[in-house]
Simulated scan of single mutants.
Amino acid sequence: MHSKVDVAVMIGSGVPASLRALGRKACWVVLVNGEQRGTAFASRVEAEECRQVWLAQLATVQGVRQGLRYSA
């Protein structure tokens, strides 16, 4: 099973109050299979870095699962 990891932008009322209080009108979030994971980021760069971590983690889990499948 392959997971899809995306970065999405949230604008307006979708932006958490803590970021709106800092004057932010947009933020970015990481979605794994369409569900938000973690916090909202003030920059796309931060969200993309988080996305890369998710991809690496999911690849590791997938590799372990494949290894278990072939070791039986």
Rank of each mutant, 00 (worst) to 15 (best):
G67T: 08
L22C: 09
R44C: 10
Q36C: 12
W28P: 00
Q52F: 05
L22N: 12
N33K: 01
P16T: 11
E35N: 12
K25M: 11
R69S: 12
A17L: 09
C27Q: 04
A72C: 06
R37M: 12
I11Y: 05
H2A: 08
V45T: 13
L22W: 04
V32R: 00
Q36R: 15
G14D: 15
G38F: 11
V15P: 00
G14C: 12
L58Q: 03
A40Y: 03
G63Q: 13
A21N: 13
N33P: 02
V53K: 11
S13Q: 13
V53G: 03
L22M: 14
V53F: 08
K4R: 09
D6L: 04
L58G: 01
V7K: 00
E49V: 08
A72S: 09
V64K: 09
R44K: 15
G12S: 04
R65Q: 12
Q52M: 10
Q57I: 02
K25C: 08
V64R: 09
F41K: 00
A17F: 05
F41P: 00
R44Q: 15
Q36H: 08
T39K: 14
P16F: 04
W54E: 15
G23I: 11
W54R: 11
W28Y: 15
G63R: 11
L55D: 11
R69E: 13
F41G: 00
A59Y: 04
C50L: 02
V9Q: 15
R51K: 15
A21R: 13
T60E: 14
Q62C: 08
T60L: 11
